[in-house]
């Protein structure tokens, strides 16, 4: 797993005391630990090929995101967003399965945002607690949340965005 060449972008002020560098370190550690190069079972017969489902050929319609709430003295959301193709590959690698069910996909992306969120939580003012991850199809819709920071990963050729948002 490598990060993109472009610098991570600071999207606004950092009232949560979470810097781009912090988030980059957390995301790099999580992906390197759980999803570094290793055996990835091939897709099952029911799965489409990357080319058929890659979001770059069909932007906006094939995204998956998982969000987890940080509650307490500071409140906000931590979000992981990627293509469904990337999420399915992550699930195949973490679960060592060839066919990925929707539950597998929810579980895998949800656990990734859970681990990132837990590490982000340690950086914000205490006391704070973590909610349970919610994984949904489509791109993350911020609503009234304010961007804190965001980093972009390039995992196995798939773009992955990890971001922190402050509650309005």
């Amino acid at each position: 797993m490598t990060t993109t060449d472009a610098p991570a972008d600071a999207l606004g002020s950092t009232p949560a005391a979470v810097s781009v560098e912090d988030l980059q370190q957390i995301a790099d550690d999580v992906w390197a630990t759980f999803l570094d190069a290793g055996d990835v079972p091939p897709p099952g017969d029911d799965a489409g090929t990357d080319a058929e489902t890659d979001p770059e050929t069909d932007p906006g319609t094939d995204a998956v995101h998982s969000a987890i709430a940080v509650l307490g003295s500071w409140e906000g959301q931590v979000v992981v967003e990627c293509s469904r193709t990337a999420a399915e590959r992550m699930a195949r690698q973490m679960l060592m399965v060839t066919d990925v069910t929707p539950a597998d996909l929810d579980d895998t992306v949800g656990e990734l945002v859970n681990v990132v969120g837990g590490n982000v939580k340690s950086l914000v003012p205490a006391p704070s607690s973590l909610g349970l991850p919610v994984t949904e199809a489509g791109r993350w819709v911020a609503g009234g949340a304010a961007p804190v920071c965001s980093v972009h990963l390039d995992w196995a050729g798939h773009p992955v965005t990890v971001s922190v948002w402050s509650a309005a």
């Binding site: 390197a32 969120g117 340690s122």
Partner: peptide, 25 residues
């Protein structure tokens, strides 16, 4: 667990946990 704050580690050890490993590991 992802619970990495010191006070959480102390709570778990006080409750009877023997060791503590923080995700990611």
């Amino acid at each position: 667990t992802t619970e990495s704050e010191n006070h959480q580690v102390v709570r778990a050890l006080a409750a009877g946990a023997h060791e503590y490993l923080i995700k990611p590991f």
